[in-house]
Amino acid sequence: MNAILLSLLGAVIILDKYALGEFGISQPIVTGTIIGAIFGDVWFGIFLGAMIQLVFLGGLPIGRDIPPDGQAAGIIGVSCYFLLRGSNSMGHSLFVAAVLALAGGIVGGALEIYARRFNEKLYHRFMHHEEALYMCHTAGLLTAFVRGLCLFIPLFVLSELLIVPDVFPQITKETLTIICISMGFANSFYLFVKKTTAIFLIIGGLCGLALVVF
């Protein structure tokens, strides 16, 4: 039941990715907070959302390029973790949630291409029936919503039912942090660091170190 309700919520939130508004609500750090609040653990929701956010920080949807779906990865990662946590240890839940989030991000990107190919049919319909402009255009909302449902329902149902055997691999919060922060550093250096801004990177780094030490 939780899985279905979460899938519906996820499919509504994912509309924000491109189909409706693009207010930033679908960003992993925000969805982590929302889903964490639903499960009564905002802090861990924010932590997981933040880690997934760092991995997908550099995914830029420019022109026809459709990168892996970071927004879907955020919803999948945080939701699967809380669904798995009900009947599994933290290490196993984190491992499975992280794997599902990254794989889900890649599959989500592929599904987005299919959704947009389906929109082609709507466009062709509009070309033949010009009076149906609003109907064909608005039907795109349904395409985006169904894409979300197709992505979330199987993964969330699996996570709700899955009991991970003890011999299965697991990951600690620290290890996940190390991997995600490394990716976050790489993404942010790539995006922001150049000759004119290098000094600010150093200042920021020194301030960050001071925060860690003191």
């Binding site: 250096f189 922001f192 801004t197 600010f200 990177l201 301030c207 960050g208 170190l209």
Partner: peptide, 10 residues
Amino acid sequence: GALLSGLLVS
């Protein structure tokens, strides 16, 4: 962004 990239160290 550059400043915050450094602050990620925190």
